[in-house]
Design a protein around this nucleic acid. Structure first.
Lengths: 331, 331
DNA sequence: TTTTACTATGTAACTGTTTTCATTGTAACT
DNA sequence: AGTTACAATGAAAACAGTTACATAGTAAAA
C-alpha cells in the first residue's frame, strides 16, 4: 500500500461517486443520512484526509517563520537563533532555517516565499535591497532584520561606529601604544560588513588621540577561527606586531589567542586583545570583549515580528541595542 | 478586471506553452535565456502569481525535511546540523528545525507531521518508541536517526561503550591514579543518554586494570558549560579531587578547564582532562578529546535519507562511526 | 393515474499547475 | 556525410479535488 488515500479510494470503498464524497465533506446537508454515514465510515477506515484542507488548516493555526542567514553555523548566529527560538518556544510556531551562501540565494529565497508561504521572516546580516523588501512586503509577509537597517522593515541593530570607538578608547586607556586590528576586509555581496564600520571608527578614534593605525597592522582575516589562527602564527613569528589588537569578531580573537599561546607571547602583557560580540566561549577563554547582546537581539527581533503579525497596523520599529565592554583577562 | 491571470494567460502573452512558463518558474536553468526573459516580462506585466492550491494539488513531494532535536543550540548539535545543511545545500530543500524540550513535544511533533507534510526527517538523540516510528512510517515519511538506534529506521550511531573504554585506557597510559568523571546522570524522558554508557564502560575498564572509580569522584553535571564551571569551582576549592577527569561531553570539559584556571590548578600536571565530541572550540582551548565526527554524522544521515527518498526500496542502513582520540594539551 | 416537485446521486467537465514524453534543431563527433 | 548527443520546447496526461448538469427515484398534488 503505497500512497496516501485519495477521494477516489474513499468513493470506491463506500460504493459512491467522488461527487458524493465531496458533498459529505463540504455540504453534508445535501446528502442522505445513510449514505453519509457509509461515506464517513470509509473516510475513517482509510484515514482519508483531503490534501488541501490539511494545508489550509495548517496555515490557520500554526504559523511558520523562517530565519534566513549567511554562514548560519557561526557561533554568533547560533546565539541569535537561540534567542529567536526561545521567544517562539511553546507557541505554535514552526521555525525554518534558510542558509544563504551567495547573492543568488537571496533571490531564490524570495522566490521560495512565493511557493511556500511564511507568516514571518527574520533575516540576519543580509543586505536585502529595497526592491527585494518590497517584493516580500507584497506577499504580506512580516519581516524583521537583524544587523542591517532598512526603513521598510523592523530592524534591530547596534552602533558599529560606537563599537570601534569603544575598543580604541579602552586600549588607549590601558596604556597601549602600537595598535592593530583583525578584520574581514574582503567583502562578499551577500552579507553585510559591519566590521568595516568598526575599523573606520577605531582608526578615527586613534587618530583623534594622537595615535596612528599603521597599515601593516591592519590584518585582513577570513570569517573562520582557524584561518585567523594560521595567519597570526606567522605574524607572531615575524616578530613585528602591535601591542594591542582589536578583533572585530570574537571568533578572530580566539584564533589570535591560540596563536599567541603557541608563540609564548603573553596576553595581555605583550599583546592586549579585545574582541567583539561576546559569544558564549569568550567567557571560557577569559576574552575581554565588547558585548552586543546576541541572544537578546534574536529575542527582540522575534518580538517585533510577532507583535506585527498580531496587529499589522503597528508601526515599524528600529531598535538599537547598547554595547558594553566586558573586561576579562586579555586586555 | 475580472479574474486573476493564470498560467494560460502568461503562456499566450509570451507565445510559449504553459510547460515553458512553468519551467521558468520552477526550473529556470532548463529554459533558454531569451525565452525566459520573455516569459518573465509577461509574468511581470500581468502580475501573474501561481495559485498555491493548484500547485499543492500536483506536487508529489514538498521538498522539505525536518531536523528534530533536543537542546538544539548546543554546539555539538549545531555541528551536526552543519553537516546536514551542507549535504542539502543546492538541492532545493527546505530545512526545518523542530526543537524538543519535553516528552510531549515528541508526540506533538508526530501530530504536526499529519498536517504538515515532510519528505524526510532527521532526529538527533531522541528515543522515539517503536510505536511512534511506525506512526511516522505510516505517513510514508523517510527517517534517519542520529545517536539513537532503532531497527525500524536508518541510523547513524557511535559505540559509546568503546568511547568510555578509550578514555580510561588513555588516562591510565598517562600514569594517572585517581579517576573521576563528569557526566549528566539525571535523565529526562525525551532525550537519549549515551553518557551513561560511556560512564559504565569507563568504570569497567578502570576496574579491569585494577583501578577504582570512587563514587565521590562521579560528578553529576547539567548539560551546560556554565553550570559545570560553577560546580567545579567548588570541587576544586574543596581540595579533594582526582588527578584525571573524563568529561563525557566537551562542553563540560570547557567548564572544568575554566574552573581549574581560576583555582590555579595546572592542567594537565595536577589534573588531566579528556573530553568527548571534539567540538570546534576544543581545538582552540587545546582540549584533548575523543572525536566523534559530528559534521560527518549529519552528512551521512542526510545521505541515508536522500538515498531512500529517491528509492524507497533500499534497505535500511545502520552506520556506526569510528571514534578517535585527539591528543592536545589537557591530558 | 398522471403530473409535479423535490431529493439523492452519478457522470463528466473543469480547475490551474506540474511533469512526462516526444519532437525539433543544432552542435560535436566519426 | 552520417551519426550521436544534447538543449529547448510543446502536447497532453496527470494531479486531487469541485461542480454543473443529467438522471433516477419517491412522495405529494392534481
Amino acid at each position: 500500500m503505497g500512497k496516501a488515500p485519495t477521494i477516489y479510494d474513499v468513493s470506491r470503498k463506500a460504493g459512491v461517486s467522488t461527487a458524493t464524497v465531496s458533498r459529505v465533506l463540504n455540504n453534508p446537508g445535501k446528502v442522505n443520512q445513510a449514505t453519509r454515514e457509509c461515506v464517513e465510515n470509509a473516510i475513517r477506515e482509510l484515514d482519508y484526509r483531503p490534501l488541501l484542507e490539511a494545508r489550509i488548516r495548517t496555515a490557520k493555526d500554526v504559523r511558520r517563520i523562517c530565519v534566513c542567514a549567511p554562514h548560519f553555523t557561526a557561533n554568533s548566529f547560533v546565539q541569535r537563533l537561540r534567542g529567536i527560538a526561545v521567544a517562539f518556544a511553546g507557541r505554535n510556531y514552526e521555525l525554518q532555517v534558510y542558509s544563504v551562501a551567495s547573492k543568488n540565494h537571496m533571490d531564490h529565497f524570495i522566490e521560495m516565499l512565493e511557493l511556500n508561504r511564511m507568516d514571518g521572516i527574520i533575516t540576519l546580516s543580509l543586505p536585502f535591497t529595497e526592491e527585494q523588501i518590497l517584493k516580500i512586503n507584497a506577499y504580506h509577509i512580516e519581516m524583521a532584520m537583524i544587523e542591517y537597517a532598512s526603513p521598510l522593515a523592523n530592524c534591530v541593530v547596534i552602533n558599529d561606529r560606537e563599537g570601534g570607538q569603544m575598543a580604541a578608547d579602552y586600549l588607549i586607556r590601558k596604556g597601549r601604544k602600537r595598535f592593530g586590528i583583525a578584520c574581514e576586509l574582503t567583502k562578499t555581496d551577500y552579507s553585510v560588513f559591519p566590521n568595516l564600520h568598526r575599523l573606520e571608527s577605531y582608526r578615527e578614534e586613534l587618530t583623534r588621540n594622537g595615535f596612528e593605525l599603521e597599515t601593516r597592522y591592519i590584518y585582513d582575516v577570513m570569517c573562520d577561527t582557524n584561518a585567523t589562527y594560521q595567519k597570526f602564527l606567522e605574524i607572531f613569528r615575524s616578530g613585528d606586531y602591535p601591542d594591542a589588537i582589536f578583533a572585530t569578531a570574537d571568533l578572530h580573537a580566539l584564533g589570535i589567542l591560540r596563536a599567541a599561546k603557541e608563540n609564548n607571547i603573553r596576553i595581555p602583557e605583550d599583546v592586549a586583545v579585545i574582541g567583539f560580540d561576546d559569544i558564549d566561549f569568550a567567557d571560557y577563554v577569559g576574552l575581554t570583549t565588547i558585548r552586543q547582546n546576541l541572544d537578546q537581539s534574536g529575542r527582540i527581533a522575534a518580538d517585533l515580528l510577532t507583535n506585527r503579525m498580531k496587529d499589522p497596523s503597528r508601526p515599524l520599529q528600529h531598535v538599537q541595542l547598547p554595547l558594553t565592554i566586558i573586561e576579562r583577562e586579555t586586555a
